[in-house]
C-alpha cells in the first residue's frame, strides 16, 4: 500500500536557491514522521508544499492520492496545519477562533459548538474560552493553534516546529497533548530542530540539511547506524581541547572537537574514560551519556543542529 504522503524528487527553488533539492520519502498512515534539520534546511518549504499552499518547482508529490499542486482545496480539506508562526485571529476570542476556522471547512455552527468544547478541553483551554487571544501565553497560543488544526478531524496533522520558542514546562504540556494524538493513530508530520523532540515524537524521520536528505530511519536506527552507543564528553578548558585531542588517538572509535568540549564516541563510555585517565589526562569535567540524534547530525554534516 502506498503511503499517505509520498514525495519523489521533490524540489522547490527560489531563483538560484534550492530550498528543497530533490527529496524522496513516504509517510505511512498512522505513523509519526519527522523532518529534523537546522535553520534553513527546507523544512517549512516541504511542509507548505505538502499542505497545498506552495507550488513545487519539480518532482512528484502525492497526499492521500491527490496532487497538492493541482487539487489544492481538496488536499487542504483533509489536513490539519500548525504553521511555524502562529496566525491566530487576535481580535477574536479563543473559542471564536475555533468556530470561525471550522466555518472555512463549511461546518455548521451547531456541529462547531460541540466541536469547540471538545477541542478546548483537549487543549486545556476551557477556562480561557472567552479570553482574547492576545492575553494568552505562548504555550496556550500554540495549543490553541493545534486545536484549530484539528477542527476538521484531519487525516494528517502537519506540525511545523510545534514547540520552538516555548519554555521547558510549556513544551512538556504540548508534547503530552501530541502523544495523545499519536496514541489515537493520527498521522503526524513534525518538523523540528530539537533532537529531543524528534526522539520523543517521531517513529521515523528524515534528517535534512540544505534541502537534501542526509539520512532516514527510526531514531534508534539512525543512532545505531551513524553513531556509537555512548558518548564521552570531556572538557579540558577551551584553550587546551585542541591540543589534548592528539593524545586521545585510539580512545573510542572516533572523536569530535567542539569549541567547548571533546566528544569521544565509544561503545562503552566508562571504559573510554578509564583509558583517558590511564594516559595521564585529567579533564576539568567529564560526562558519559547515550548517543542522540544531535550526534547523528554532527556526524553527517560536521555541524550542530542549533547554531
Amino acid at each position: 500500500m502506498p503511503g499517505v504522503i509520498s514525495a519523489r524528487g521533490l524540489r522547490k527553488t527560489y531563483g538560484d536557491v534550492a530550498a528543497v533539492d530533490g527529496i524522496d520519502f513516504e509517510v505511512e498512515a498512522g505513523e509519526s514522521f519527522g523532518l529534523l534539520g537546522p535553520n534553513g534546511a527546507g523544512k517549512s518549504t516541504t511542509m507548505r508544499m505538502i499542505g497545498g499552499t506552495l507550488d513545487r518547482t519539480g518532482g512528484e508529490l502525492e497526499v492521500l492520492g491527490m496532487d497538492p499542486g493541482s487539487e489544492r482545496p481538496q488536499v487542504r480539506a483533509h489536513l490539519g496545519v500548525v504553521p511555524q508562526q502562529d496566525n491566530l485571529d487576535e481580535e477574536l476570542r479563543v473559542r471564536e477562533n475555533l468556530v470561525m476556522y471550522g466555518r472555512y471547512f463549511g461546518m455548521s455552527r451547531s456541529v462547531l459548538a460541540a466541536k469547540a468544547d471538545e477541542l478546548l478541553a483537549f487543549a486545556q483551554l476551557e477556562a480561557k474560552a472567552r479570553e482574547k487571544v492576545v492575553n494568552l501565553s505562548g504555550g496556550m497560543k500554540r495549543r490553541l493553534t493545534i486545536a484549530r488544526g484539528l477542527v476538521n478531524e484531519p487525516r494528517i496533522l502537519l506540525l511545523d516546529e510545534p514547540t520552538t520558542g516555548l519554555d521547558p514546562q510549556a513544551r512538556h504540556v504540548l508534547w503530552d497533548r501530541l502523544f495523545r494524538l499519536k496514541e489515537t493513530g493520527t498521522t503526524l508530520v513534525v518538523t523540528t530542530h530539537f533532537m529531543d523532540e524528534a526522539e520523543q515524537l517521531c517513529d521515523r524521520l528524515i534528517v535534512v540539511d540544505h534541502g537534501r536528505i542526509m539520512a532516514q530511519g527510526s531514531p534508534g536506527q539512525l543512532i545505531r547506524e551513524h553513531s556509537t552507543r555512548e558518548v564521552l564528553e570531556l572538557r579540558f578548558g577551551s584553550a587546551r581541547n585542541a591540543a589534548v585531542v592528539q593524545q586521545l588517538k585510539g580512545v573510542g572509535e572516533r572523536n569530535e572537537v567542539l569549541p567547548d568540549r571533546i566528544l569521544v564516541y565509544a561503545r562503552d563510555g566508562e571504559a573510554a574514560l578509564e583509558e583517558v585517565a590511564a594516559r595521564g589526562l585529567h579533564p576539568v569535567t567529564s560526562l558519559v551519556r547515550r548517543s542522540s540524534l544531535e550526534d547523528v547530525f554532527l556526524r553527517l554534516t560536521g555541524r550542530s543542529l542549533i547554531d
Binding site: T53, R76, A77, E90, F105
Partner: peptide, 11 residues
C-alpha cells in the same frame, strides 16, 4: 498579524 495565513491552510 498574518491573519490571511490561517485561512490559506484551510480549503
Amino acid at each position: 498579524n498574518r491573519l490571511y495565513y490561517g485561512p490559506v491552510a484551510s480549503p
